[in-house]
Amino acid sequence: MSRSYTLDLPDADATRAFGTALSAVLRAGDLVVLTGDLGAGKTTLTQGIGAGLGVRGQVASPTFIIAREHPPLTPGPGLVHVDAYRLGSLDEVDALDLDSSLEDVVTVVEWGEGLVEQLADDRLEVRLERPHGGFTATSDLGDDEEPGTEDGAGAEVGVRHATVTAVGERWDDVALPGEPPDPAS
């Protein structure tokens, strides 16, 4: 069973703030799968999750190292941040051995759609959509970097739309940030 809702994220700060709010309902063992074009805000959202979890280290796109672990600085779970952009098969995902630490941390996988769903029956899927056009070459927006860049080139200005889908029983009774109230209750 699953449920979905969409919310607007007007800028990078709102995207980070949503990630921070989302971290409040996350616990060890949770899997978050992020989908969206380059510059959609996947890493920015993960930065908010990391800040909310109180993890060590700068949360940056792990494009070339594939996965980065951020241990907790406070009581609570750490964060494993995965960028599956360069992975092309389930065998490559299995080689990361993510399921060995899944129960102890919050695992966030960028570009994971179609690759990591088998890791957990219960997961959050977040699809980030950005407007097209209006490119800026500044990095102060804090958005995702294109693979191979360090300056954030390709980040775009405009309201992003996040569609959050809660999959599995784990999320049945969890009120998610930005989710409209259930009219049946």
Rank of each mutant, 00 (worst) to 15 (best):
E179T: 04
V164A: 05
A120M: 03
P77Y: 12
A14V: 11
P177S: 05
E117N: 03
L7I: 15
S61E: 09
V106E: 10
R16I: 02
T165C: 10
G39H: 00
L128C: 13
E179R: 02
G52M: 11
G29R: 08
G152Q: 09
L79M: 03
L141F: 13
P62W: 10
L34P: 01
L7P: 09
A14M: 11
T63R: 02
L176W: 02
D8P: 01
E156F: 10
D122Y: 12
S139N: 12
A95S: 14
T35F: 03
D97I: 01
T107Y: 01
E110K: 08
T136L: 14
T35E: 15
L45R: 06
A162H: 00
G134I: 07
F18K: 04
L119I: 12
V82K: 07
F64W: 11
V25S: 05
L98A: 12
T20P: 00
V167M: 03
S89H: 06
T46C: 09
A95K: 00
S89I: 14
V33R: 00
P177C: 10
S100I: 05
A40V: 07
E69H: 13
D151A: 11
A21Y: 00
G168M: 09
V55Q: 04
V59N: 08
V59P: 01
V126I: 15
I65P: 00
L141W: 08
P72L: 13
G88H: 13
S101Q: 11
D8F: 09
H81V: 14
T107Q: 03
D182R: 11
S2F: 09
L87E: 12
D121S: 12
P62R: 07
H161L: 14
P77Q: 08
G50C: 07
A60D: 13
L96P: 07
D173I: 02
A14I: 11
A51Q: 15
L34N: 02
V116D: 01
H132M: 07
F18C: 04
G134W: 03
E150Y: 04
G48I: 11
V116E: 08
E110C: 06
